[in-house]
Design a protein around this nucleic acid. Structure first.
Length: 416
RNA sequence: GUGGGCGUAGCUCAGCUGGUAGAGCACUCGGUUGUGGUCCGAGAUGUCGCGGGUUCGAGCCCCGUCGCUCACCCCA
């Protein structure tokens, strides 16, 4: 029996794992730049948390969750998204009792039992932030700017920020009345009509031409915003303007999680195929209360690390490893190998990244290994070096060598 | 869940109307008794995804299955 990874999971091995780590670290740095603090949360939660948080009628809940019963008979679900778990932790530990907003970031694996596709996996990685407790347009702009800063720091260019406002409850109620009337007059198949009955906004996202052409005349939620919602949204866009962050208004932007209200956004990459959303998020007014907490608003985003890596690769960005090897040591002969191992261990204790050749490789092969390791310097240790203590460190890129004694290697490496 | 394409060496792929498996890259060794990237030479590597069927004979045809992939759906 030959084992294979479970269907549809993403995994990153040498070659791509450095790029993945770089993406994650860059987005982490963006979150830290704005004062977000780490929340390390479980990957599974009470099933009910997601049912109530994400929305009972969403596809995510009705057909994409990994749900199972644990040994105590509890219904457990692998987290399909991050916000519900963060809210649970905030409520459970009373994090909202101090100063607001509570600003948290998280990263890790998420799970949805979907049919795999380009950029869509059953286990995938996200990094997200949540700012909870205040309904301040400056926070909306900050959250969007953090995500955008992360993408720009990576060097991404071929993406766009789409943004809209889903308004507050009164706005949406007024719109829905008119939208339902409009949809009732449309020519639709049964499945689509059923979908519309659950959430009519979904029809704005339909890719079929028959639906798209009819929906082009549909009433838009953006035209129903209350004055308060309008003011909030225009302030957010003004802030983005002042930050120099470009965006396009997408009045038919719809998201698959039910909890979004007000400011809602999505980052879309142009070179990714059908699964082109590399991240998205928005404000959620009723979520915390819905989950048994105080009636506080919040806003956050989730960025898809797998898709962002794909986007970087599609743009041909170089994702370098900042923590590569400083030195690669080649030992010739048993005695030299013993000495070299001690030297390597001691340099590692001093904080350098060092590797050495193992086995009994010929010098040529060992040099090749040094080359492939990506180390900045190489060093050959043989009988002569062991007895004299004199060595010569070679700079791999230039081929230049530097003579010194073994005891001064650390000082030499430090000077670079 | 629905539909299309594809599974051959570690990777990318070739393999004719069915006749018993190949290339390039990567890897190892040597040319150059202790200095990589170039060049030259040699070598090693496969249950041809898996199971069944047709056939004297299957990598090739048929069925099933698993996986990958692309799109729908949905979303990160």
């Amino acid at each position: 029996m030959k084992f294979q990874a479970p269907k549809g999971v993403s995994e990153y091995l040498p070659g791509r794992s450095v790029g993945f780590d770089h993406v994650r670290n860059t987005l982490t740095a963006a979150a830290l730049s704005a004062g977000y603090q780490l929340a390390e949360l479980p990957v599974f939660e009470d099933t009910e948390l997601f049912a109530r948080g994400v929305g009972e009628t969403t596809d995510v809940v009705t057909k994409e969750m990994y749900t199972f019963e644990d040994r105590g008979g509890r219904s457990i679900t692998l987290r399909p998204e991050g916000t519900a778990g963060v809210m649970r932790a905030v409520i459970e530990h009373g994090l909202d009792r101090g100063q607001l907003p509570v600003k948290l970031w998280y990263t890790g694996a998420f799970f949805r039992a979907e049919r795999p596709q380009a950029g869509r996996y059953r286990q995938f990685y996200q990094l997200g932030v949540e700012a909870i407790g205040l309904n301040d347009p400056e926070i909306d702009a900050e959250v969007i700017a953090v995500a955008d800063r992360g993408l720009k720091t990576l060097g991404l260019k071929d993406y766009r920020l789409e943004i809209t406002s889903l308004g507050d409850a009164p706005s949406r109620l007024a719109h829905r009345v008119d939208l339902d009337v409009f949809i009732s007059k449309m020519d639709l198949d049964d499945a689509t009509r059923a979908k519309a009955a659950v959430n009519p906004l979904r029809l704005f996202d339909d890719k079929r031409e028959v639906v798209k052409s009819q929906m082009s005349q549909a009433p838009l939620l953006i035209d129903y915003l209350s004055e308060e919602s309008q003011l909030h949204f225009s302030r957010v866009t003004s802030l983005l303007d002042s930050y120099g962050i470009e965006y396009v208004r997408n009045t038919s932007l719809v998201r698959g999680l039910d909890y979004y209200t007000g400011t809602t956004f999505e980052f879309v990459h142009e070179k990714l195929g059908a699964q082109s959303a590399i991240g998205g998020g928005g404000r959620y007014d009723g979520l915390m209360r819905q989950l048994g907490g105080a009636d506080l608003s919040g806003i956050g985003f989730g960025m898809g690390l797998d898709r962002i890596l794909l986007a970087c690769e599609a743009e041909g960005l170089e994702l370098l490893d900042p923590d590569g090897l400083d030195l690669f040591v080649i030992a010739l002969g048993s005695e030299a190998k013993f000495v070299a191992a001690g030297l390597v261990n001691s340099l590692r204790n001093d904080g350098f990244n060092v590797d050495m050749s193992y086995g009994d490789r010929a010098l040529k092969g060992a040099m090749k290994a040094a080359d492939k390791s990506g180390a900045r310097f190489s060093l050959v240790v043989g009988e002569d070096e062991v007895t004299s203590g004199q060595i010569s460190i070679k700079e791999m890129e230039t081929g230049e060598s530097h003579a010194m004694t073994i005891s001064t290697i650390a000082d030499f490496l430090d000077s670079f």
